[in-house]
Design a protein around this nucleic acid. Structure first.
Lengths: 237, 237
DNA sequence: TGGTTCGTTTGATTTGAATCAATCGGAACT
DNA sequence: AGTTCCGATTGATTCAAATCAAACGAACCA
């Protein structure tokens, strides 16, 4: 195991058989550009709960998530936390023109990222319309998600929030791993609460309520969507 | 007045002396590109409360706001509304790769926009790294604002929400029109409520409370920030 | 001048979620 | 097996904001 990690950490070994090659930013690159791009990238691993970057860090790198799950969050000075998103493999995280990252990112469980120094990445992307358009597409997608999340935070009840989260999370996993109503939840209840603008107690109560109503079954490490039609109705309504 | 409006509506008349030329998307274009770009644009006016585009409309155009204020919002099927942002002159609205706009936009007061058909705009932008980079920059900026707004919606009290809104709105106006503690509020209390995830009554009460505390003065058509330090402290905390 | 309208403010009451406070239960130690 | 730990659940109570309900006041019009 150790030796294989060392191997993939070496520049220029990774892209050809990268799990994320087909649908991440790099999908927009042809094989020659890819070759050059490889030289800029560096695979890195993070352990459970390790911080990849923090809110006030100088934004020196961008990250392409290859494996694992990350939580992205903002903190208020008094410690209140809002999770602005969970990142899954293929997500391009930390893109900004600002001097500092505006949010923190840390690993939920072990994480592998493909890391790019901001400067070289910028110079590489500068005159590559394909890549720039792809980055635009990703930014706009994220913006749409962000707006959906605003509706959720501002206008939905606790029950709707939880149902929407479960359905949305399942859909993302389905896209990544194929259909299943088993919904693994690697994040803690506190994470879910901070994502939904609720407290941990309310999240827990709402899970229990949804289970009593036969909509989900609570399992170790996740839930199973028993009545996904009803969950989807709650998420839509 | 009528005649001058007709004049600026004509293709190719507008860009050179456009109020927004210096800081909008088009700031990234050189004078030759500008010439071509002009041909794609069309100035349009919207009356108070007119809808520029709606959530489920096919997204056939992008809009560069030249004058006036727009509210951008999403509706839930049952009519609950979340305003995801207010657009001011210079804002580039409706950019998406999706088939449909994910939100609605309408005019708060009379509005002038510079409109681009999606197809021609896309073809024009396709191979213009300068423009693509500028669009990226704007998208990332919006994304940062969106994330800030998530924190506000998910984790802040009514009082903090209102203070944050007033300070943020003032800052945007200052950038546009120069320093002043007079904060015109062209949007209704209902709009503010739907922006902050509150009810109209709570917004009204909170305004009154801030006035009692000497932080603002409520004036017809807006407020005056009497103690902007205190307001800023509430917004930051 | 008086009436209507509509957005806003103010007051009384309710309620959904937060807070405070145990308790539970599995994992990791002795 | 017993102990500690820590995240999750459950219960009791509080509270901030929503809801329900008037009243206000400026603009418009008859």
């Amino acid at each position: 195991m150790k030796t294989s990690l060392v191997a993939v950490d070496f520049h220029g070994q990774a892209c050809a058989d990268c799990a994320v090659r087909g649908f991440s930013v790099c999908a927009s690159l042809d094989q020659f550009e890819m070759r050059e791009f490889e030289q800029l990238s560096r695979r890195t691993h993070f352990a459970t709960c390790e911080t990849v970057f923090a809110q006030e860090d100088t934004s020196s790198c961008f990250y392409n998530l290859l494996d694992g799950v990350m939580r992205l969050y903002k903190l208020l000075p008094d410690g209140r936390r809002q999770i602005v998103g969970f990142a899954l493999p293929g997500d391009f995280v930390g893109m900004t023109t600002e001097e500092r990252h505006g949010f923190s990112a840390d690993a939920i469980g072990p994480v592998t990222v493909c890391q790019f120094a901001k400067g070289p990445f910028g110079r590489f992307a500068e005159d590559k319309p394909n890549l720039l358009r792809r980055m635009n597409e990703l930014a706009v997608q994220e913006l749409n998600q962000a707006r959906d999340h605003m509706v959720l935070l501002g206008r939905r009840s606790a029950e709707e929030k939880v149902a929407t989260f479960l359905v949305g999370w399942r859909d993302r996993l389905v896209e990544l791993r194929g259909p299943s109503n088993m919904v693994p939840l690697p994040m803690s209840r506190q994470d879910i609460a901070d994502y939904l603008g609720l407290t941990i107690e309310t999240v827990s109560r709402t899970f229990t309520k949804l289970e009593r109503e036969g909509i989900i079954a609570i399992l170790p490490g996740g839930v199973s969507l028993r009545d996904s039609a009803r969950a989807e109705a709650m998420a839509a309504a």
